[in-house]
Computed example of a mutant assay.
Amino acid sequence: MIQRSHGLVRSIEGEGKGYTRALNLGLAKSDGEWVALFDDDELAAPDWLKELFLFAQERSALCVGGRRELALTQDVLSGLGPVCRALMGEFLQKESTTKCHPKLHPYGGNMLIKRSVFDAVGVFDEAMRTGGCDRDLVLRAMNAGVSMGLTPMAVVQHIIPSQRVTPEHIKWYSLQLGNSIAYIDWRRWGRMKTCMACVARIGQALLVNIPLFLVAYIQRDLPEIQDRKALLWRAVAYSQKTLSLLSSRLFGQDSYFSKLEFRRERESMGKE
């Protein structure tokens, strides 16, 4: 209706080749100076885009992110620890800043990027079918010296159906995240440093997360139990991806990794 009456919106049908390919297709078909990233399971505040653009202009930033809240009831939120809440996309930025770093930067789903950034660092990596392509792009931009920032004034809410707040889904998200982090680290750091990071993650799992999981289990602290499980699954996926990158012949797991793709979610969860 908007397209017919005002010509403000143009929809593009995807090619069925995954989320990252769809992002690049939309990017190729658009021609604006700025590109906003917004997911189909989000609701934006009325001034969301305005706040991102104003911040970009005021701070001379070429990549800007905002605040993302989870649209869940308080009862559901209280049953989730900080690890699981972040896993589901919660990003409660409280202050405006231009001091971004690899652990604090804009994320997809609430981000405004100047088109010149894509010209400088390239588009989204279509080899990343299990998520994380937004983080990969931002880290490449950061490495290239692109100015960026965060504003809590640009707010979106992530709509999460209650059936997705389950241990099975949390496990799937954790495996997906660990896989994508390992891939990004491999590209950024190379073989040696990624292998060292893998060993460190295994050590952290054995010496920190398993003991804390046992303590939480004894205390029946359900949010903490789920958080520790999520971190352990992340370490497992990171290790599996690292081994696969080391030798796809010896540790090839194409079938396993394909189940972590965005479009495979329902199949992996046993949904129709």
Rank of each mutant, 00 (worst) to 15 (best):
L137I: 02
I159V: 15
Q157K: 01
A141E: 01
H169V: 04
N179M: 13
P167A: 09
M192R: 15
H158V: 06
S162C: 07
Q163V: 01
V146L: 10
A154T: 00
R135E: 11
D134Q: 03
R191I: 02
M148A: 09
M148R: 02
S174E: 07
W172E: 01
P167C: 05
M153S: 07
V156R: 00
Q157V: 00
R164L: 14
H169I: 00
A144D: 11
M153T: 01
V138G: 05
L139V: 03
G149P: 00
A144S: 13
K193L: 14
S180Q: 13
I181N: 10
V146T: 10
P152S: 12
E168S: 05
L137Q: 08
V165S: 09
I170Y: 08
G190L: 09
P152C: 08
W172V: 02
V146C: 08
N143Q: 09
G132C: 07
T166S: 13
V156P: 00
G178D: 05
I170D: 14
I159C: 13
G190K: 11
P152A: 10
R135D: 04
S180V: 06
Q163Y: 04
M148F: 03
Y183F: 14
R191K: 12
I170G: 09
Q157A: 04
V146F: 06
E168N: 03
